[in-house]
Simulated scan of single mutants.
Amino acid sequence: MAAKERDRFSTATRIRLLGEQTAARVYRSQTKRQAHRSRLTSRAALLALVVCTLVVALAYPMRQYVSQRAQIADLQRQKQQAAERVEQLRDLKARWQDDAYAEQQIRRRLHYVMPGETGYVVIDPDATKQARADLVAADRPWYANVWDGVDKSDASDQ
């Protein structure tokens, strides 16, 4: 019995038993970890599937939302431009209500002169070809210019 007791308490026997116990613990730990990993992997796959589904489901509505916001911004810009144009036209209408402004525009555009005044046309030597054509048109009666415009527009339609 002394040999068995001595063998039971020997260092080699204790180390061997300790190694076997440690190996059993490591094996059990790895098995649990692998089972936990497989569960985590299936959960991650399910989560990825849900996220992808949400992204696909929300992609089109988000695109529509962004597109509609851009349309709204464009329409607001057009509305602002239209309001500015209306204001400019109101100012112009108010100016034309003034007899002095109307007389000034008639004199400048139609080259009218008041009775007793003498009209002069100053020719600029540096004027462009178009400006010279306008000056030639200014020497003619206004109704001749109107008929020429009608003839030119009629010729451009053909």
Score class of each variant (00 low, 15 high):
residue 2 A to K: 01
residue 7 D to F: 07
residue 8 R to P: 01
residue 12 A to P: 00
residue 14 R to G: 09
residue 18 L to I: 03
residue 18 L to Y: 11
residue 21 Q to V: 06
residue 22 T to F: 02
residue 26 V to I: 11
residue 26 V to A: 07
residue 26 V to M: 06
residue 27 Y to L: 09
residue 27 Y to Q: 10
residue 30 Q to Y: 04
residue 32 K to H: 04
residue 33 R to P: 05
residue 35 A to E: 13
residue 43 R to D: 12
residue 45 A to P: 04
residue 60 Y to M: 03
residue 63 R to D: 03
residue 72 I to N: 01
residue 73 A to C: 04
residue 74 D to E: 11
residue 75 L to S: 08
residue 75 L to A: 07
residue 77 R to S: 11
residue 79 K to D: 04
residue 80 Q to R: 14
residue 81 Q to T: 02
residue 86 V to H: 07
residue 86 V to K: 13
residue 92 L to D: 10
residue 95 R to G: 00
residue 96 W to K: 09
residue 97 Q to T: 01
residue 97 Q to M: 03
residue 99 D to A: 15
residue 101 Y to Q: 10
residue 102 A to S: 10
residue 102 A to T: 05
residue 103 E to Q: 13
residue 103 E to T: 02
residue 104 Q to H: 13
residue 105 Q to N: 05
residue 106 I to H: 13
residue 108 R to N: 13
residue 109 R to K: 08
residue 111 H to I: 05
residue 117 E to Q: 14
residue 118 T to G: 02
residue 119 G to L: 01
residue 119 G to H: 01
residue 120 Y to P: 00
residue 124 D to N: 14
residue 125 P to V: 00
residue 126 D to N: 09
residue 127 A to T: 09
residue 127 A to I: 12
residue 131 A to H: 08
residue 131 A to I: 13
residue 131 A to S: 12
residue 131 A to L: 07
residue 133 A to W: 09
residue 133 A to E: 15
residue 134 D to R: 11
residue 135 L to N: 05
residue 137 A to Q: 11
residue 137 A to G: 13
residue 138 A to S: 10
residue 139 D to G: 15
residue 141 P to W: 15
residue 142 W to V: 15
residue 142 W to I: 14
residue 143 Y to E: 03
residue 143 Y to H: 12
residue 146 V to T: 01
residue 149 G to D: 06
residue 150 V to E: 06
residue 150 V to R: 06
residue 151 D to L: 03
residue 152 K to T: 14
residue 153 S to W: 09
residue 153 S to H: 12
residue 154 D to K: 01
residue 155 A to Q: 12
residue 157 D to L: 10
